[in-house]
């Protein structure tokens, strides 16, 4: 069990206040365990110091793989024929570019999805104790870790920052 074995979720009406709360919390000893919100927010991402996602590397790798696979498939199948069709050489590299291009897009997208699934750790059906349904609707939830004896102080701190804590018995759970 860590020192900060209690998690409290404060709900904010807009992302600016949630971002300010994150910035303020980072000056304290209470860690920001998570932030949930209905839309992506640059202000919150900046406050959390979130870096750009690496999903693009998956996409790039998929695209390169797809391009060569598409070209290989077209070359391989044509080599099996050995027939001249419409006066084109058996290995017509220029029209094969179309197959290569389509496979580039297809495998880029498949790799993009794979990257998203892996990086977002989906599917994730286990309950998140601090997740509040309001966070998918219209509230930004900041989840703060603290020790049991610090709960009143943390609540007061978050309330001063504009946070709401409806159903507080539910928001205070062991991590």
């Amino acid at each position: 069990m860590t020192d900060h074995d209690i998690h409290i979720t404060a709900l904010f009406a807009d992302d600016t206040r949630a971002a300010d709360a994150v910035t303020a919390l980072r000056q304290t000893e209470w860690p920001v365990a998570d932030v949930h919100g209905p839309i992506p927010s640059q202000a919150i991402s900046d406050a959390l110091g979130i870096k750009t996602s690496g999903v693009g590397w998956f996409t790039l790798a998929g695209g390169v793989f797809g391009f060569f696979l598409g070209y290989f498939l077209a070359v391989f199948t044509s080599a099996r024929w050995g027939l001249i069709v419409s006066g084109k050489p058996v290995l017509s590299y220029i029209p094969f570019f179309i197959v290569g291009f389509e496979f580039t897009i297809l495998f880029s997208v498949l790799a993009n999805v794979l990257g998203l699934i892996l990086l977002m750790r989906l599917p994730a059906h286990r309950d998140l104790p601090c997740y509040r349904p309001e966070c998918s609707a219209d509230r930004f939830g900041v989840v703060v870790g603290c020790r049991r004896d610090e709960v009143p102080e943390v609540r007061r701190f978050l309330t001063e920052l504009g946070g709401e804590m409806p159903g507080q018995a539910d928001t205070q759970r062991d991590s």
Binding site: D34, P40, S45, N112, V113, L122, P123
Partner: peptide, 27 residues
């Protein structure tokens, strides 16, 4: 799929969605 709108999820989602759009356009 257990989406909880965490900013860690949004970070990847926004990027991935942008790449989707960028790939769908030439497609």
């Amino acid at each position: 799929l257990g989406w909880t709108a965490r900013y860690e999820q949004w970070r990847h989602y926004s990027r991935g969605y942008l790449l989707f759009a960028a790939l769908a356009t030439p497609l």
